[in-house]
Write a protein that binds this DNA or RNA. Sequence first.
DNA 1: CTGAAAGCGCTTACAG
DNA 2: CTGAAAGCGCTTACAG
Lengths: 339, 339
Amino acid sequence: MAVTLKDIAEEAGVSVMTVSNVVNGKTARVSQATIDRVQGIVAARGYVANASARSLAASRSRTVGVLVPVAEGDMLTMSPHHVAVIGGIERQLRQAGYHVLLRGITEPAEVGQAVQEWGLDGAVLLGFLDAEIDALPAHGVPLLAVDSYSLNPRATGVRSDDVGGGRLAAQHLLEHGHRRLLFAGPAFGASGVVRRRHDGFTAAVAEVPDATAETVAVNTTYEDGLELGRSLRSRFPDVTGAFATADVLAVGIMAGLRDGGASVPEDVSVVGFDNLDLGLYVRPRLTTVAQDLGEKVAVAARMLLGEIDGTEAAGEVELPVRLEVRESVAAAPTPPPRG
Amino acid sequence: MAVTLKDIAEEAGVSVMTVSNVVNGKTARVSQATIDRVQGIVAARGYVANASARSLAASRSRTVGVLVPVAEGDMLTMSPHHVAVIGGIERQLRQAGYHVLLRGITEPAEVGQAVQEWGLDGAVLLGFLDAEIDALPAHGVPLLAVDSYSLNPRATGVRSDDVGGGRLAAQHLLEHGHRRLLFAGPAFGASGVVRRRHDGFTAAVAEVPDATAETVAVNTTYEDGLELGRSLRSRFPDVTGAFATADVLAVGIMAGLRDGGASVPEDVSVVGFDNLDLGLYVRPRLTTVAQDLGEKVAVAARMLLGEIDGTEAAGEVELPVRLEVRESVAAAPTPPPRG
DNA sequence: CTGAAAGCGCTTACAG
DNA sequence: CTGAAAGCGCTTACAG
């Protein structure tokens, strides 16, 4: 069996609770001699506190759930973006002495179950729809929703400046002389993120007299991008600049355009969103709206931890974005003289 | 406060342990009437068992650790391959009623600590060096090492047929007439996986009379591949076919070759390993050695669960690989006449 | 500076 | 078919 507090206490000739105090650093009123002796034994015996007993007694688990909806096939829906977020969150929480429970969620009610079952001190919600988060009842623990525009006051939202990102993409294309633009992204009934990007994009377009933008709904996959790219010139003959709400989509569009005989960026310029490594792997390298993921994760973890220990109130945080200029945007081609 | 077993017991007018039995499905000797009444109350009150109390009392946690070494920067080292494995493992374990603790490991000793601290029923080791797993002491719980050739008898290994994968890559190039081949991958002192792929590759080359293979050590990143690709033709002027031990590397090499004025596959053919989506996003699409990741994960989860409940013994499982033929390999160019 | 007692919410033999 | 008792390994007030 593993070494327990009692074993240490007996060997040190002190009470269990003194050992507990030393182990937990509550040494304000413990003599230095006792501290040294207990710590020596703890190290020698390789004592590790039992997390279950600790949670049960203290009614705090020092555990945070990272909750991710599962898609069809019951698999976690983990985009490269999610992965980076999870990695960053795990690191920050670990350094703060917290543990991470990773769990796929089949239906929203399971969020509350997970919190109860594990006595989670908090939870990070990754990839949920705004409406799902809106509908979440209060569970008494801090909830942090990443990339959500939910209005649920119980959940803190951490996200990037999506409106600004949309603007940036449009402005970049406009500055290069493009006047017929295309916004490509998933239908945004359910996604506040996409809607904000669309808002920013169209707002910037509206500021330039003869510029117009069309919108096309397309799933966020390479294949859907490919298909759109292939038919883009026939479906949108005037368009010379396209903005896709995700890098995979943008990369697919570029490949499709080329398949269809158009060259990128000479005939059609493309801007993505996310700044995935992928954008560096393709030619031309993808110009894209970049979020500072490291900072986003750091802020998210800090907020959650702050809420858990009560030093921070739920709130909304929006992080800045910037344009990562690479090679997929060029000056608009001069149209052939008409008539 | 949350509803407890005691609350249910009082409302149902039975003992706590009868409720416990019903909740845990040990209903062999409980009357149907009691079962129905208890289950009704459980559902109505939204009872969820407290995992900490349960672990503590039963000395089994129904929790499995997914342990991943952290790189510099203290971040989880999560390749797309790891992500897919984690996603699959989480799903299988969840469906089996287990939970997943995700934890970054700074030094091997933390593996044992994590097991003890949480009373983990088992652990999945992802991305560890063979030597690190060799050195792991027995922790009394099943350990499953993914993609490891560790000799540690306490750890079950699940991996792909790396020797066969190396052979497949070489044979494919040889069949297309290539006789001067290059093996590009990380120095394999520490990696049994890479060494096996190299073994298979060189063995296949050795079977063809006038074929030869050179080996170059390069880190598994796009950038390192790019650099290698750019200098490939000057460093290895005779080479017409290259095998990279990872798709990102292969994609980098292809881009570098093109930067250096060579065309792929006309001048140099390239084969990767992993079958990441990335290989479909680049042109030419990457021919690569594919592992059946879904099957690998399924087997891994089944083994681990089997070992936990004692129906399975530790062992080694090797899964087949196949070649995913796409566009990055062509017939060897006929060399210009010499002299 | 230190400790005895109660209790967190469950499960495990055991008894009837 | 059902239950009373003990105990898992800790922490939390509280007392001295």
